[in-house]
C-alpha cells in the first residue's frame, strides 16, 4: 500500500508539470489547429535560462530566494518573447497554407532551438541550483519533499490564473470566440493576430513556469530535455481532448498518475516479464485505448460529421 501512495504523489507532481505544458499545446491547437512541436523546446529554454540567471545571481552573493525569483522572471521574459517571435516569424506567414506545412516548420524550429541551446549551453548536463530547502514530509508511509508540494501548488495557481484569463477577461472571450470560428470572430471585431499571439505568449509563460519546476524537481537539465517532455505533454493534451483547457489539465495529471503507477506495478502485473523501463509505453498504450473508445479524447467535444 505504501508504494501506492508514494506513486500517487510522484504521479501528481509529474502530472502537474505535464498539465502546464499541455495547456500550451492545447491553447495553440484550439485557436489555430496547429501542433506546435517546438513548445517542448520552449520549456527547455525556460529551464536553461533559469539555471544561468539563478546560478550567476547566487554566485554574485544574492540570497537564494531572490536569485530563484530572478531566474523565474528571466525565464518568463525569455520564453514569452520566444513564443511571440515563433508565432510572428515562423507560423504567421504560413496561415492558409497546406495543413502539414506549419508542422514541418514547427519541427524545423524545434531542431533550431535545440541546437542553439547546445551551442550556448553545451552538450553536458547542467545542475539546477536548489531553490527550496530539502524538507521531507511523511504521510501514510509515503515520502514527499517541499519541492514537490511547491510544484503542485504553483501549478494549481498558474492554472487557476489561466482559467480566470480565459473565462473572465475580454482577451479570454476573444480567444474562445476565435477558437469557435475565426472568420466570424474577426467580423465581430476580434483582432485575430493579437489573439493568436496572446495564445503563444500565455502558453510560453506556462512553459517557463513548468521549465523552472522541472529543473528544480530533477535538479539537472540538458538541451534535449524538451523533446520527450513536450511529447508527453502533447499526449496528455490529446488524452484529455485537444483544444480543451480542462481536458489538458486532467489529461496531464492523469498521464502523470498512469506513468507513476504503471512504473510501480508493471512488474507485478506482467509477472516479472516487463520491467519498469517500460514506463514510457504506458502513456501511449493508455492513449491508444482511450482514443479507440473516445475518438476525441476524454473531454473532447464530439465532432459529428456534417453532410
Amino acid at each position: 500500500m505504501d508504494i501506492f501512495f508514494q506513486q500517487v504523489i510522484n504521479g501528481l507532481v509529474q502530472g502537474s508539470i505535464y498539465a502546464l505544458v499541455a495547456l500550451g499545446y492545447t491553447m495553440v491547437y484550439g485557436i489555430m489547429g496547429l501542433i506546435n512541436f517546438a513548445h517542448g523546446e520552449v520549456v527547455m529554454i525556460g529551464t536553461l535560462v533559469a539555471i544561468a540567471v539563478t546560478s550567476s545571481l547566487i554566485g554574485a552573493g544574492v540570497p537564494v530566494a531572490v536569485a530563484g525569483l530572478g531566474g523565474l522572471a528571466a525565464a518568463l521574459l525569455v520564453c514569452m518573447a520566444l513564443g511571440w517571435s515563433l508565432e510572428r516569424v515562423a507560423y504567421r506567414p504560413l496561415r492558409g497554407s497546406p495543413r502539414l506545412t506549419p508542422l514541418i516548420t514547427a519541427i524545423g524550429m524545434s531542431i533550431i532551438l535545440q541546437n542553439l541551446a547546445m551551442i550556448i549551453w553545451g552538450r553536458n548536463y547542467l545542475t539546477f541550483p536548489p531553490l527550496l530547502p530539502k524538507i521531507n514530509y511523511e504521510f501514510a508511509g509515503a515520502h514527499f519533499t517541499l519541492v514537490q508540494v511547491a510544484i503542485v501548488l504553483i501549478s494549481a495557481a498558474a492554472m487557476s490564473g489561466l482559467v480566470f484569463l480565459v473565462y473572465r477577461t475580454r482577451l479570454g472571450m476573444a480567444m474562445r470566440a476565435t477558437a469557435q470560428n475565426p472568420a466570424v470572430a474577426s467580423l465581430m471585431g476580434v483582432n485575430i493576430n493579437r489573439v493568436i499571439a496572446a495564445a503563444f505568449v500565455v502558453g510560453s509563460a506556462l512553459a517557463a513556469v513548468a521549465g523552472v519546476m522541472v529543473g528544480s524537481y530533477y535538479e539537472i537539465a540538458h538541451y534535449q530535455m524538451g523533446f520527450m517532455l513536450g511529447l508527453k505533454a502533447f499526449t496528455a493534451a490529446v488524452l484529455g481532448g485537444i483544444g480543451n483547457l480542462a481536458g489538458a489539465m486532467a489529461g496531464g495529471v492523469l498521464l502523470g498518475l498512469i506513468e507513476a503507477l504503471g512504473a510501480g506495478y508493471i512488474g507485478d502485473l506482467s509477472g516479472g516479464f516487463l520491467g519498469s523501463h517500460y514506463q514510457d509505453i504506458f502513456a501511449f498504450i493508455v492513449l491508444i485505448v482511450v482514443l479507440m473508445f473516445k475518438p476525441s479524447g476524454l473531454f473532447g467535444e464530439k465532432t459529428g460529421e456534417r453532410a
Partner: peptide, 28 residues
C-alpha cells in the same frame, strides 16, 4: 484497424505513440 477512424491529428499522435512503443520493445 483500430485507429483509422480517428481524425487527422489524433491519428498522428497515435501513430507516434506506436512508433515509440515498437522502439521501446526493441530496446527491452
Amino acid at each position: 484497424s483500430p485507429t483509422l477512424k480517428l481524425r487527422g491529428d489524433y491519428l498522428a499522435i497515435v501513430t507516434l505513440g506506436f512508433g515509440e512503443i515498437i522502439r521501446i520493445f526493441l530496446n527491452n
